[in-house]
């Protein structure tokens, strides 16, 4: 930015010189005219040459009738009237008038035009510079925003990576938990199944023992019932009565 500000005066001076050269050239071109425009026309020149020849030779007819060399000189003089003036050096009066006009125009331009042009150019330069500064500012802001976005993007990527890692860890932990739980369930079910099998086995043994006992008792009951005759009944009853009688003090 400092280099830009140091180049600005030189650029203004160059522009000013270029503007002045342009104004001078335009003035020269505007004020430049053919030699005959500087107070002597072709007709006047021919007329003056004709008067000079008439004064020298008495009349134009005498010149015409005179020697061939004199006529050719006259014709050269006439041709000199129609020859173009110097493209570089104008006539003196043209220089004077042109210089005066140039001076007037220059003064006017230096008084009014140049300041206006300078102000316009300064305003334009300032506007351009302001636009450049705004563009620089916008660019800087854009770069800052870009940096922020890039930082946020990097942060988001980091966060996403952390989340993914955490999710992966949690998934692994969950998988391990589920696996452990499933293994525990399987072990528990296996233990329970073994307990059920053992319980069923014991129950079956008990049932079988009960069935065997029922069959045995039923058989014994039938055998006992068939073998009890009147004498045995009487003996059992008498024994019962004696037992009740002998239980004095117990009941």
């Amino acid at each position: 930015m400092a280099a830009t500000n140091s180049r600005r005066p030189r650029r203004h001076a160059a522009r000013l010189l270029a503007s002045a050269a342009l104004v001078v050239s335009a003035t020269l071109l505007a004020t430049a005219a053919p030699a005959m425009a500087a107070g002597e026309t072709i007709g006047g020149c021919v007329l003056e040459k004709a008067k000079e020849a008439e004064k020298e030779h008495g009349s134009l007819q005498a010149l015409k009738d005179g020697p061939e060399e004199v006529l050719e000189d006259f014709e050269d003089d006439l041709e000199g009237c129609v020859e173009a003036p110097s493209p570089i050096l104008p006539e003196i009066d043209e220089i004077i008038w042109g210089s005066a006009a140039f001076a007037i125009l220059f003064v006017f331009m230096a008084w009014k035009g140049f300041p206006a042009v300078r102000r316009a150019m300064d305003a334009r330069s300032e506007k351009i510079q302001a636009d450049l500064d705004a563009a620089d500012t916008a660019k800087a802001e854009a770069m800052t925003t870009k940096s922020q976005y890039e930082a946020q993007l990097a942060e988001a990527k980091t966060a996403a990576a952390a989340i993914i890692d955490e999710a992966r860890v949690q998934a692994d932990q969950l998988r391990q938990d589920l696996q452990a739980r499933a293994e525990a369930d399987i072990a528990e079910q296996r233990t329970r199944a073994a307990a059920d099998i053992e319980s069923s086995r014991l129950q079956a043994i008990d049932d079988l023992r009960g069935d065997v006992a029922s069959i045995a008792v039923g058989a014994a009951e039938r055998v006992v019932g068939a073998s009890l005759d009147a004498e045995v009944h009487r003996s059992l009853i008498d024994g019962y009565i004696d037992e009740v009688a002998g239980s004095r003090g117990n009941g």
């Binding site: 008990d206 009960g210 006992a213 008792v217 019962y240 009740v244």
Partner: peptide, 29 residues
């Protein structure tokens, strides 16, 4: 089956062969 079962109110004096067989059955079972 054999023997006597006597009930006096809620009191029971069981001297029957049936009760002995049932006792044997419970012992076996």
């Amino acid at each position: 089956v054999g023997g006597i079962v006597t009930e006096i109110g809620d009191d029971v004096i069981d001297g029957s062969v049936r009760s002995r067989l049932q006792q044997m059955r419970s012992d076996l079972g």
